[in-house]
Amino acid sequence: MGDRLQGRVAVVTGAANGIGAGCARIFRQEGATVIGIDREGADYACDLTDEAATQALFRCIGEEHGRIDVLLNAAAFAVFAWIEDLSYADWRRTLTGELDIVFLPTRAAWPWLKASGSASIVNFASANARHALEGSPALAHCAGKGGVQAMTRQLAMEGAPHGIRANTIAPGFILTAATRRHIESDPGFERQVLAKNMLKRLGEPEDIAWCATWLASGEARYVTGADIAVDAGATAW
């Protein structure tokens, strides 16, 4: 057990699976009081694209704890399709699942983040926020993650007078239950990922969680508006 987040109140969305679950686990290990949110399987069940439900949940959390020191927005969903096959409904669904699902919890948490005086927002961008990925039918996802990156820079500016820092992490390929299924269905995909990685291994949720822990802690008190690639060097060449 560590103490890098001792005494910090951290809300983690998407906490039941993948990167969100890894971050929640490491945050607890480092001493934080963690409130996990997901559709199911977390401390609180909530549809974070429902404005009224999200507002009510964060009011409950804020009133119980008096403040929120860390908000990590890991919840997301997207539809991947080439533009010729991407319906307008799926385009809008993806932007809801990439942008609204960050905006609504952040707005609902804002008064409680201000109450912290030293709060940290950690959002998730992607290599797709900065450039296209060959062979990836990710048009809506690219737009969503680019929006998250831009939104986070703005949040950094708006939050600075209140002691709120906001940063993004851009993960590389991370092994989760969902991505393992993709690898199993396409044996050549793992080779493609490793060929791009400078470090010849696949990432795990904990690799992202340790970066998030640093951003959530006082160690990163001078860091805001940044985007940090955690991707085995895949976007560095």
Rank of each mutant, 00 (worst) to 15 (best):
Gly2Arg: 15
Arg8Ala: 11
Val9Trp: 12
Val9Glu: 12
Val11Lys: 05
Val12Asp: 01
Thr13Ser: 05
Gly14Trp: 01
Gly14Gln: 03
Ala21Tyr: 08
Arg25Ala: 11
Gln29Cys: 03
Ala32Thr: 10
Thr33Leu: 15
Gly36Val: 13
Asp38Leu: 03
Gly41Asn: 05
Ala42Arg: 13
Tyr44Gln: 13
Tyr44Asn: 08
Asp47His: 10
Leu48Arg: 06
Asp50Cys: 05
Ala53Glu: 08
Ala53Met: 08
Thr54Gly: 13
Leu57Ser: 10
Leu57Val: 07
His65Cys: 13
Gly66Gln: 14
Gly66Phe: 14
Gly66Trp: 13
Leu72Phe: 15
Asn73Ile: 09
Ala76Ser: 11
Phe77Ile: 05
Ala78Leu: 04
Trp82Gln: 02
Glu84Arg: 08
Glu84Ser: 06
Tyr88Met: 04
Ala89Cys: 01
Trp91His: 03
Arg93Gly: 10
Thr94Asn: 06
Leu95Met: 12
Leu95Lys: 08
Thr96Glu: 12
Gly97Ile: 13
Gly97Gln: 15
Thr106Asp: 03
Ala109Glu: 04
Ala109Cys: 07
Ala109Asn: 06
Leu113Glu: 06
Ala115Leu: 12
Ile121Met: 03
Val122Gly: 07
Phe124Trp: 00
Asn128His: 11
Arg130Asp: 11
Arg130Leu: 06
Ala132His: 00
Leu133Gly: 03
Ser136Pro: 00
Lys145Ile: 01
Gly147Val: 09
Gln149Gly: 00
Gln149Ala: 13
Thr152Ser: 10
Arg153Val: 09
Gln154Cys: 11
Gln154Pro: 01
Ala156Asn: 03
Ala156Trp: 03
His162Ala: 14
Ala166Tyr: 06
Thr168Asn: 15
Ile169Arg: 01
Ile169Val: 03
Pro171Ser: 04
Thr176Ser: 08
Ala177Asp: 14
Ala178Met: 09
Ala178Leu: 09
Thr179Cys: 01
Arg180Ala: 00
Ile183Pro: 02
Ile183Phe: 11
Glu184Asn: 06
Ser185His: 04
Gly188His: 02
Phe189Gly: 00
Gln192Arg: 07
Val193Arg: 10
Val193Thr: 09
Ala195His: 06
Asn197Tyr: 06
Leu199Lys: 04
Lys200Val: 04
Glu206Trp: 07
Ile208Phe: 00
Ala209Phe: 02
Ala212Tyr: 01
Thr213His: 11
Trp214Gly: 01
Ala216Cys: 07
Ala216Ile: 01
Gly218Pro: 12
Gly218Leu: 11
Glu219Ile: 08
Ala220Phe: 07
Tyr222His: 11
Val223Asp: 06
Val223Thr: 15
Thr224Arg: 09
Ala226Asp: 12
Val230Met: 02
Val230Pro: 08
Gly233Val: 10
Ala236Phe: 10
